[in-house]
C-alpha cells in the first residue's frame, strides 16, 4: 500500500514536471524546424537552425532589440536597487512617526493596477517629450513600494551596532549607508537585482505603449510583433524566444538561491 502511494506520487510529479518542461523542449526543437513543421507538430530536431537565425537577423534588428532590452534592464536595475534600498534603509533605521505614515501611504501603490495609471503616464511622458526613449520605460518603476518593503524587511536583521561603530569612526550618515550598509547587505541586493532585472527584461505593456519606432523596441515587443504578423514564421520566432529566455534561465541556474529568495520577497 505504502509502495503504491509512493508510485502514484512519483507518477503525478513526473507528469507535472513533463508538462512544465515540455514548452522548453518545444522551443529548442522549434528553433531547428521550419514554421510549417512547427505548426504541423513535428516533434524532433531539424536542420533549419542556421537558416532561421539568418532570416531572423535579416527581418528584424535583433541586435538593437537585445541592446535596448539590456540597457533598460541594467540601468533600471541599478537605479531601482539604489533608490529602493535608500528608502528601505531610511524608513527602518531612522524610524519616526511621520515616516511610517508616509511608508503606509506608499504601500497603497502596490494595489494600484497599472492599467489605471498608464494613460496619465503616457500623457506625462509625451508632454515631457520622452516617449520612445529608454528613460520612459525605466522611470515609472524605478522605485516600487514592493522593493522598498523588501529592503525594509531585510534591514530589520541588519546589525545596527555596525552603524554605531562607524559613527564613532566619524563617518557621515551617507557614508554609513554606502560603506557599511551596502556591503553588509550584498545577498539582499543580489536577490533584489535578479527580480528587478527580470521585471524590466520581461516587461511588455508599458514598453508597448512607450516605445513606438522599430529601432527602439525591446525583445518581448519584437517577439510579440513577429507572432502577431499576418503570416508568422514560427521558426524564427522560436529563435527570438530562446534569445529572450536565455538570460533569465542562465541567471536562474547560476544564482538559484538568490533567485528564489527574491521571488519570495519579504514573505518569510
Amino acid at each position: 500500500m505504502k509502495k503504491l502511494t509512493t508510485m502514484v506520487v512519483h507518477l503525478f510529479l513526473i507528469v507535472a514536471s513533463v508538462i512544465s518542461l515540455f514548452p522548453f523542449v518545444w522551443m529548442l526543437m522549434g528553433m531547428t524546424n521550419s514554421s510549417s513543421e512547427i505548426l504541423k507538430g513535428k516533434f524532433s530536431f531539424g536542420s533549419m537552425l542556421m537558416e532561421n537565425i539568418h532570416k531572423l537577423l535579416d527581418m528584424t534588428s535583433l541586435g538593437a532589440a537585445f541592446w535596448n532590452s539590456a540597457i533598460i534592464a541594467i540601468i533600471g536595475t541599478v537605479g531601482t536597487l539604489l533608490l529602493s534600498s535608500m528608502a528601505g534603509y531610511g524608513f527602518e533605521i531612522y524610524h519616526s512617526k511621520s515616516k511610517s505614515r508616509l511608508f503606509g501611504l506608499l504601500m497603497l501603490s502596490m494595489m494600484m493596477p497599472f492599467a489605471a495609471v498608464m494613460i496619465p503616464l503616457f500623457r506625462m511622458f509625451s508632454g515631457m517629450g520622452l516617449l520612445n526613449t529608454p528613460t520612459a520605460v525605466i522611470l515609472p518603476t524605478i522605485t516600487t513600494a514592493f522593493m522598498i518593503f523588501f529592503f525594509l524587511q531585510n534591514t530589520k536583521s541588519f546589525p545596527r551596532e555596525l552603524l554605531q561603530a562607524g559613527r564613532v569612526d566619524g563617518l557621515s550618515e551617507w557614508r554609513l549607508f554606502t560603506r557599511i550598509y551596502m556591503p553588509t547587505m550584498k545577498p539582499t541586493y543580489a536577490a533584489a537585482a535578479i527580480i528587478t532585472f527580470m521585471n524590466y527584461w520581461n516587461s511588455f505593456l508599458w514598453p508597448l505603449i512607450a516605445l513606438q519606432t522599430q529601432d527602439k523596441k525591446t525583445l518581448p515587443l519584437v517577439v510579440s510583433s513577429l507572432a502577431s504578423s499576418y503570416n508568422p514564421d514560427y521558426g524564427i520566432i522560436m529563435v527570438a524566444i530562446v534569445i529572450t529566455t536565455l538570460p533569465s534561465v542562465l541567471i536562474f541556474f547560476l544564482l538559484q538561491k538568490q533567485f528564489v529568495q527574491g521571488m519570495l520577497g519579504s514573505v518569510k
Binding site: L83, S84, M86, A87, Y89, G90, F91, I93, Y94, H95, S96, K99, L102, L106, S109, M112, A116, V117, M118, I119, P120, L121, M124, L139, P140, T141, I142, T143, T144, A145, I148, E173, W174, F177
Partner: peptide, 20 residues
C-alpha cells in the same frame, strides 16, 4: 533619515499617486 527616503518617495508619488 529624510535624505534617504525623500527622493524614492517623491518618485512613487509622481509615477503612481499622481497618475492615479
Amino acid at each position: 533619515g529624510w535624505q534617504f527616503v525623500a527622493l524614492p518617495s517623491a518618485l512613487i508619488l509622481l509615477f503612481s499617486f499622481y497618475p492615479m
